[in-house]
Design a protein around this nucleic acid. Sequence first.
DNA 1: AATATTACCCAAAACGTTTTGGAAACGCAA
DNA 2: TTGCGTTTCCAAAACGTTTTGGGTAATATT
Lengths: 334, 334
Amino acid sequence: MPVTIRDVARAAGVSITTVSHAFNGYEDVGDETKKRVLQVAKDLNYRPSRVARSLVLQQTQSVGLLISDFNANPGSNHFLFDVLAGIHNRLAELGYDVTLLSTTTARQQLISYIDFCTERRLEGVIVMGMRMDDPYMQEVADASLVSVGIDLPILSRHCGYVMTDNVGGAKQGVKHLLSKNHRRIGFVNGHLHAVVSIDRLRGYEDALQDEGIAVDPELIVHSDFLVEGGEKATAALLERRPDVTAIFYASDLMALGGMRHLQKAGRRIPEDVAVVGYDNVDVGQWVVPALTTVGQKRYEMGTSAAEMLVGMLQRKEEPRACVLQAEMVIRQSS
Amino acid sequence: MPVTIRDVARAAGVSITTVSHAFNGYEDVGDETKKRVLQVAKDLNYRPSRVARSLVLQQTQSVGLLISDFNANPGSNHFLFDVLAGIHNRLAELGYDVTLLSTTTARQQLISYIDFCTERRLEGVIVMGMRMDDPYMQEVADASLVSVGIDLPILSRHCGYVMTDNVGGAKQGVKHLLSKNHRRIGFVNGHLHAVVSIDRLRGYEDALQDEGIAVDPELIVHSDFLVEGGEKATAALLERRPDVTAIFYASDLMALGGMRHLQKAGRRIPEDVAVVGYDNVDVGQWVVPALTTVGQKRYEMGTSAAEMLVGMLQRKEEPRACVLQAEMVIRQSS
DNA sequence: AATATTACCCAAAACGTTTTGGAAACGCAA
DNA sequence: TTGCGTTTCCAAAACGTTTTGGGTAATATT
């Protein structure tokens, strides 16, 4: 149905070789014929088939975007979408197509994500929204497929990653609190099998130690990154140490839950207890008081991942770890 | 580099025809050979090339997902992401790949989105996040490419759409307010060149008329769907009609802005002024008081769009308008 | 014994490109 | 005349599949 290079060749009275050459900037086609071919092609609305092109060139110029399980990440959609936008836009600029792929897809069809990619001859893949304990992690780790992970610190022969500096970010958040003269600062962390939790704990400890303050284990409590969890964790923390003057949360959602509990318990924010979250979710600017938080450069994470991937693809660059700085967003809760 | 059907054929000592037949469920291959071929294929890690397959079959089994300009929709990311998840998941189940595409991509490379799709031999396209006055709209309208729009009420020979019932939704929102005995209900609408604004106005009017209440033009004010706009519009409305007892907003963001102003102005919510929004953004459940709103079934919009598209593709179904019911989410602000 | 049927298998063409290795035509120098 | 460079063009192979239209041998039917 669609018009082929052969149609153009026939209509212009030349060979398909000539048409191909005219399109691809070869020098061995006369000015006169070149103009004619191009005109005919335009008239016929000719568009070269990428699939035929991919077949002969043995490269598809397209990469996969693996988003783990789409619905498994409630509350982090804003994050994923911004990163996705960055990935797509940069990749488009660089001439690559991006094909969506989720682990549910693969599971539904009982196919590994590697198989999915090789069938489609995807040249690389960017992975995001995946937890370290996801069974697919092993696959991306050992794969010979070129890949870069978002917030997945695995570095291997063909696999780089980009993430934000979580220890630095947490450190900034706590330092901010310290600068407001808080000394008994609670920390509500996420579960410890998440990489970010470990790093943020490090940042928390580092900030205190820089100031010569001993880390008090009673001030640290673990939760699950979500609102309810933050609420309960805050209750537990207040029970144990009613004298905290500030709480640093490893996620905004937990901070939101925490603020809810604090307000119920009659503590004013920030006068009685200051609150700092982590993630810079949209919600943060609409709660009262607006939430101080440390945010990630989401869009930039996407563009960086895109650039790293094509670097590995085109210039055979080594996979590396790209860590971006976090950015403090100071609002009214602290 | 990757292993081809020829490699398998050679290793199994059969022709490529036989390998192809063995893989595709033909009956004319012996049990013995079939088993051998499959085993060899597995050993060699053979994966049939989709691009070769697409070329000969003349169909790619993949569709485009056009997201207008990615960054042009601040605040509606959550919406787009959920829809995207629905689209992708359903499409994957139905055996289609989805390729990302934004109008910025096309603009960058000075290529129309139609050309983008035909070059890649995409079989159809789902369009979302686009405004009716976007210059690309004309293209999707006259395109011969099979397509379905999200929240884009254009119906043509090859083009269907899915959207939520905005007049019904607005009607529900206002009826809810009426049921709480409010009689002077303000309406902060979006700009009128957005289709949804016109429908929501209709719903507002219908609800009042059903109750025998005259529509008072002084109670209606236009804004821009965003927070600041809602804030100003609310100020203007209160100025003009200080006696309103409830306000219905055409977007949650405007409602958020409105609540901010109301609280500044010393009006209690919902005691003095009840508030109902539209969209069910995540934020809504975290502000105090939590925002009553009318929401769209975002994920379901995605799956519906996916189903409509493959219906048109595979069963030659006629393009149709699929309108989903809105759902009231009642919280504390009303 | 001849013929029809069945069960397996395969060669070759096709899909729409790119690229290689010339060929034809021409001008120019020997 | 011959030989040689240029310029402009093209035929054919290749990419990895699917599908058509057989073919061969063994078995069943007459």
